[in-house]
Design a protein around this nucleic acid. Structure first.
Length: 299
DNA sequence: CCGACGTCCTGCTAGC
DNA sequence: TGCTAGCAGGACGTCG
């Protein structure tokens, strides 16, 4: 499930492979993605040159120098492909001679015998062309919150104080912090020693700071290990991630907590399975440092 | 206005 | 051994 670290890995992998490449053709499957690729976009991107790749939250932006943009823009317009990997999307650059997998929805033929492929078995993902250069962010900033590494501490505390939503729902809300999904929400809450069901407004200033730091720390470490591969995820050159080996709670129901050795629990919150350690992440009161195992009574 | 929940989609797996 | 029901979840629409 591509979240920020996985998307960042794809962008870093693809950047050197795509920058400077020219799109010489587009092929598409008959199956529809969440947002269907429009036929008129074929002509717009054909002949375009990739000038760079960016990430915003879980979204990938492929910057294009487009000689024939649609929408009446002048020639040489800066346009963009906005890509979301959804649940199972794979965005890879490979030699055109490589055999084609199933569920391949879009193939951008590139110069120098390369292909940019979008594969997505579950079809929650999308690739869209934006002809307007008016918005530098193509509207993403209108509904996306902070990047995890760029959270204002004071505003973060204030925003949490204003919501009665539980922390799991808050973290999954892309308008709050962009890029956090189910895996990294659970891992960040564990690292911050906060119970996922606690309302945002119940946090002390110290707990808000802990959560903010935990989100950034988890994301940083996950990017270092190229993200988590649970099932489908691969980077831009087809490599799997490694952070799944470092998950403390996600997907580890019943297994020992790496800190206190107590069993990891799983409840349903915000419609998602939520993994946590009941001892290290107490529901009540200010989350204190994990207590050592019950010590023998008496002295 | 805010929060909760249903919907989309396919592949894998748990359980009979 | 074979079948099927249920689960996985990111974004978004709808409902209360």
């Amino acid at each position: 499930m591509p979240e920020l670290p996985e998307v960042e890995t794809v962008v870093r992998d693809l950047r050197p492979l795509l920058t400077g490449r020219k799109i010489v053709g587009v092929r598409k499957s008959k199956q529809k993605l969440r947002h269907a690729w429009k036929p008129e976009w074929d002509a717009a991107v054909t002949g375009a040159k990739v000038t760079g790749l960016r990430r915003r939250g879980k979204w990938i932006l492929v910057d294009l120098d487009t000689p024939n943009p649609t929408g009446g823009g002048p020639k040489g317009d800066h346009t963009v492909l906005v890509v979301h990997l959804g649940m199972t999307g794979q965005f890879t650059a490979v030699p055109a001679t490589e055999s084609e997998p199933d569920h391949l929805h879009l193939v951008f033929e590139l110069d120098r015998g390369k292909q940019l492929r979008f594969r997505d078995p579950r079809r929650f993902g999308s690739v869209e062309y934006h002809p307007s250069a008016a918005d530098a962010d193509y509207g993403l900033d209108a509904f996306l919150g902070w990047e995890p590494f760029d959270i204002d501490p004071e505003e973060f505390r204030q925003s949490l104080a204003l919501t009665r939503q539980n922390l799991k729902a808050v973290l999954l809300n892309q308008a709050f912090v962009a890029g956090v999904g189910n895996i990294y929400a659970d891992e960040a809450l564990f690292r911050a020693r906060l119970h996922p069901a606690r309302p945002g407004s119940s946090l002390t200033a110290d707990e808000c700071d802990r959560l903010r730091e935990a989100i950034a720390a988890v994301m940083t470490r996950a990017i270092e290990t190229r993200g988590s591969t649970i099932r489908d995820y691969v980077g831009g050159s087809g490599l799997r991630g490694g952070f799944q080996n470092e998950h403390a709670v996600y997907g580890r129901t019943g297994e020992p907590c790496p800190v206190c050795r107590g069993a990891v629990a799983c409840v349903r919150l915000a419609g998602r399975s939520s993994h946590f350690c009941p001892q290290c992440q107490p529901r009540e009161g200010a989350g204190r440092a994990p207590r050592p195992r019950a010590s023998p009574r008496g002295s």
